[in-house]
């Protein structure tokens, strides 16, 4: 049984159908990537899984338990954390407080403390800026904070939405390296990216989404060689 099972999900914004029957699965321990162009439905897919947008039809299940209509604040308790598009850190709060918010649902103090350590090991820059207001961080640091905040929930599965957006190339490499580290430490990852090249280089499997529908799914290696993917998403002629 897959850890995360999305089945034939239809999600609307008002009367606009953003997802027209999306199905995908993520197995425990995998990095799975969802690639596609702007407006294809990548972000909506993650929002539907995280419970902030609601599927009008279809189902989402975590470890076999149906979470289609579970409110967002309960979904994080079940083990899904979301680092959203545009980072959306709490700009007026300190780095420390942002991480605290990430651990809001947790009561296991000593475990939480070890997770602070884990986040600071992954992102030493955050430790240097621990008492600084998050709004004063650079774009790269804010991205690190958004990922760190999600990790503080100690999720089974981490949803990452465009972690490379707006970052300098050096930082993009670093962020993808860190995603691999996080995965190696045992966290399953569902990664949404426009940077298909980088995403496919670290993922095991991938899905291609176009106008609200999954049009391709294969191993990451196979997708990277696929003619259509190379043309449309890898910028090759």
């Amino acid at each position: 049984m897959a850890m995360l099972q999305v089945e034939n999900v239809h999600t609307f914004y008002g009367t606009i159908e953003a997802l027209k029957g999306v199905s995908l699965t993520v197995e425990e321990g995998e990095i799975v990537t969802l690639i596609g162009s702007n407006g294809a439905g990548k972000t909506t897919t993650l929002r539907t899984i995280a419970g902030v947008s609601h599927a009008r039809a279809g189902s989402v299940a975590l470890d076999g338990e149906d979470i289609t209509n579970t409110p967002a604040n309960d979904i994080v308790r079940l083990g899904i954390a979301h680092s959203p598009e545009g980072r959306r850190i709490f700009a007026g709060m300190t780095v420390r407080e942002n991480l605290e918010m990430g651990a809001f649902t947790r009561t296991d103090r000593t475990e939480v403390d070890s997770d602070y350590q884990r986040v600071f090991d992954l992102f030493p820059r955050l430790k240097e800026r621990i008492l600084q207001r998050a709004g004063t961080l650079s774009g790269g640091e804010q991205q690190m904070l958004a990922i760190g905040r999600a990790l503080m929930a100690r999720p089974k599965i981490l949803l990452l939405d465009e972690p490379s957006m707006g970052l300098a190339p050096v930082l993009v490499e670093l962020v993808f390296k860190i995603i691999q580290d996080i995965n190696a430490q045992g966290t399953t990852v569902l990664l949404v990216e426009q940077n298909a090249h980088m995403a496919l280089s670290i993922a095991r499997r991938g899905y291609v989404i176009q106008t609200g529908r999954i049009v391709l799914s294969d191993s990451a290696q196979a997708l990277a060689k696929n003619e259509m993917v190379r043309k449309a998403y890898l910028g090759e002629a």
């Binding site: 967002a72 604040n73 709490f90």
Partner: peptide, 12 residues
């Protein structure tokens, strides 16, 4: 600051 994001922290 961001009620939707707060709900994703597990805040009711």
């Amino acid at each position: 600051q961001d009620s939707e994001m707060a709900s994703q922290m597990g805040i009711d």
